[in-house]
């Protein structure tokens, strides 16, 4: 589903996707560490890298890609993530589990949110 509005908060750390009456809110950190780019995800699942230290990352700008996605440009220079409408919905739906897994993965690797 295509959101009607995509709103970036004043502090640029929170993205709101508005679909009619329902809103999904995703933090810049959450989007950054779950970037779908090959740079972050690798080309196969065993190449997946965990991204740490992004607690204070913010979104500089948003670009619409064709009919199907947005590209987010983060202030740490990461700009290759193309977030499809479907991916954004999936991220929101499974937000809590993804986040819990991310935190425990950080801990296992001795990393932190920064």
């Amino acid at each position: 589903m295509i959101p009607e509005n995509i709103i970036l908060s004043k502090n640029k750390k929170e993205l709101t996707l508005a679909y009619g009456a329902s809103n999904s809110i995703l933090s810049a950190e959450f989007l950054r560490v779950n970037s779908p780019s090959a740079e972050a995800k690798g080309h196969s699942s065993d190449q997946k890298k965990i991204v740490s230290g992004k607690k204070s990352v913010s979104i500089n700008s948003i670009e619409i890609i064709g009919n199907y996605a947005i590209r987010l440009i983060f202030d740490d220079g990461h700009s290759t993530g193309i977030y499809t409408w479907q991916y954004l919905q999936d991220l929101f739906k499974e937000k809590d589990e993804i986040w819990k897994e991310y935190i425990s993965e950080l801990r296992r690797k001795g990393l932190n949110r920064g």
Binding site: I2, P3, E4, N5, I6, I7, L8, S9, K10, K12, S61, I62, I64, N67, I70
Partner: peptide, 10 residues
Amino acid sequence: KSKKPNIIIN
């Protein structure tokens, strides 16, 4: 036509 979302940057 798939409507483009509005991007609102505060």
